[in-house]
Design a protein around this nucleic acid. Structure first.
Lengths: 228, 228
DNA sequence: TGCACTATGCGATCCTGTTCGCATGACGAG
DNA sequence: CTCGTCATGCGAACAGGATCGCATAGTGCA
């Protein structure tokens, strides 16, 4: 049922191109995988990530807890799947609605809004994704970092186009700027995930930080550029 | 032996001012606490945070694993103690060596260097501190976030002084800028902690991001400030 | 039909952070 | 001396993520 194009990163499934023809078992496996992901998603939303026991997820998916590991390498991966899907969706929506001729600041704002809408739905997405990056060597960490890279890449693209169009200062390091913007959004979400500020406060915090950044990015007549 | 001024946040110790005079037991308790922290520190450095079992820490400290919880509220707290101590030290060193008349960019650079030297010693410090913030509601999370706030406050102070002295543009939002700088440093350390870049690469990444930021902070003759 | 192969599932088990109830022993009050 | 109080310590137990060895059952091949 899922779109056939992406390899759909199941654990065993991705390991090797199927040497034998599509097995009846493989069909069952795909169905199980879908049930697991559905059950996990429901439970995560109902009781939160930490309170959702693997045994409970398994029960809802109609199987034992240990069987889940036939399809998933860790509990966190279950949420990262979700995150990846939503992220993909947010990117595509941005690309659809993006007006390449709009001012760069405006394009970035739109992108961050999409990003914010994505993550503000569920603090767990932020929390667990971040937590995943604190387990170096784990597969999940790499998956999340890959998402980071793609986000930075997208921002870089926007900034680079801004430079081409003389919308941004030509002296500016677009990659550093893209990273800075991304880092700000990531880290600014931490207080929100901890309930210290609400979603709107978080958004504003990000916006004002990006404002500060853009003060230095926008092309303007300036005498020199790197004065101490 | 530790300086008497800070309340030395042991779990039970801090809970209430001792109603009865200093007990022999309290002395024993303090000694145990010291042994635990020492043992934990050693083991963390030897095998890393995750591989250091509480049972192993307890054994090295000469007590059972469960007894540790008389002095500490969670394993993570053991490392946050460390972090807090080192952080305090780094702040003090910065304050000692800081020349308030130096250019603001330079002062910030010095501060970030101290900060980097502090954290580059041990990836676990970054990793676990970050992980702690992904457990909302946990005591450790609040402790780490308090450290964040103090760091941001210090940066704010430096930037504010820069504004006063006309070193920085008066229109700039110093708090937003301080937050932005801090967020960049925090988040930029994630790829390093995951082994994707080395310590030097991480430092450079931070520096260039801050460079971009300062392009907009430095006071310069500019026509308007909030052009689209 | 029999055999090798392998994806899926299961229950038992492991590991480790954390909690619980109880024991010990130092202290002050009566 | 005795009793209540309380900080400390202990071992058992719990919880939940992860691993292991075994069973089941499709599939292709001879």
């Amino acid at each position: 049922m899922t779109s056939p194009t992406p390899p759909e990163g199941g654990a065993a499934e991705r390991s090797r191109r199927p040497l034998r023809r599509d097995d009846g078992r493989l069909v069952r496996g795909r169905r199980s995988r879908a049930r697991i992901r559905a059950a996990a998603g429901e439970l995560f939303r109902e009781v939160g990530f930490d309170a959702a026991t693997l045994r409970a997820i398994g029960a809802r998916a109609g199987m034992g807890a240990s069987s889940i590991y036939r399809h998933v390498r860790s509990k966190e991966e279950l949420l990262v799947f979700d995150l990846r899907d939503r992220q993909e969706e947010a990117w595509q929506r941005f690309r659809r609605e993006d007006d390449k001729r709009a001012p760069t600041r405006e394009r970035v704002r739109k992108f961050l809004e999409a990003q914010h809408a994505l993550l503000a739905e569920d603090p767990d997405l932020t929390t667990i994704a971040l937590r995943a990056t604190t387990h170096p060597g784990a597969r999940v960490a790499r998956q999340v970092l890959a998402l980071h890279d793609r986000t930075i890449g997208l921002l870089f693209e926007v900034l680079q186009q801004g430079k081409m169009r003389r919308d941004l200062d030509r002296e500016v390091d677009a990659m550093a700027a893209a990273r800075a913007i991304f880092h700000v959004t990531t880290s600014a979400r931490i207080p929100w995930a901890n309930g210290l500020v609400d979603a709107e406060g978080c958004r504003i915090s990000i916006e004002s930080a990006v404002d500060v950044l853009f003060r230095g990015l926008l092309a303007q007549p300036r005498p020199t550029h790197n004065g101490v």
